[in-house]
Design a protein around this nucleic acid. Structure first.
Lengths: 125, 125
DNA sequence: ACGTTATCTGAAGATCCGCGCAGATGAGGA
DNA sequence: TCCTCATCTGCGCGGATCTTCAGATAACGT
């Protein structure tokens, strides 16, 4: 299981080791890093990304609309949405036989916004 | 190869089909969604997440310091950093025999910040 | 109650990806 | 020049994940 050499090496007696200690304190623990990574991982898929940006624009869509919009089989969309919902990225609402999905909260929206800027794309300008 | 039924179904003659057309226009194309997804995917890993948050706090770290901070073999860190660098998430700077890495730009920093809030963690307050 | 429509679920197959090891490369110091 | 330290690279294994098919479930309209 992952053995990591103790603090010898380039940080041995260096003033750097102080810095390392500082970093250790601020590095997220396994639990938190896990949550963070999971959130990112969920967005890290072309299909899911498209769906989420669609929801960002329109606000609310049912499965078959999503399917039509991103050109993906409905069953696949359903699976994807289940995944996103289980992780709290989206919420859903039933209306008759349709189920409408929407982004769960403002954080997710902000996240998507920030990243679109990073890619250099101009969304609604 | 992904066959998707045309626009029949629930959007057949509905006023909804209009909405679908709207969504189509705003959904990122394959190229853009690909970039976005790749960025997210890079962050979607516990190890990389930890490293990036470490860099967010301290600003700059060499491979062996990162290795010590997140307790991961140096070779693995090196590989990870190469991956992140190739995608423009981090930058590096050589000083003697050490190579210092830092977050590439403000967008990445903002991204990490936004997400830490989403998880409900208080970083430096 | 029946058929249709919209959505969900389970399972299998193929693919992809991260991980660590061992050796190679590059930069300094004596 | 030789030796040491920091970092990089190639390879192979194990594990996780996406995709899709086919059938189940739920909600309508008649």
């Amino acid at each position: 299981m992952g053995r990591v050499l103790p603090l010898d090496g380039c940080v041995g007696g260096d003033p750097q080791s102080q810095r390392v200690a500082l970093v250790r304190a601020s590095v997220p623990d396994d639990a938190e890093a896990g949550s963070l990574a999971e959130l990112f991982r969920l967005l890290g898929d072309v299909r899911r990304t498209k769906i989420l940006y669609a929801l960002l624009e329109v606000g609310e869509l049912c499965v078959c609309d999503i399917s039509a919009a991103v050109r993906v089989p409905e069953a696949s969309v359903s699976q994807t949405m289940r995944l996103l919902r289980a992780s709290g990225v989206v919420d859903n609402r039933r209306e008759g036989r349709r189920v409408y999905y929407r982004l769960a909260d403002a954080h997710v929206r902000m996240l998507l916004d920030v990243c679109r800027e990073h890619t250099g794309h101009e969304g609604s300008r």
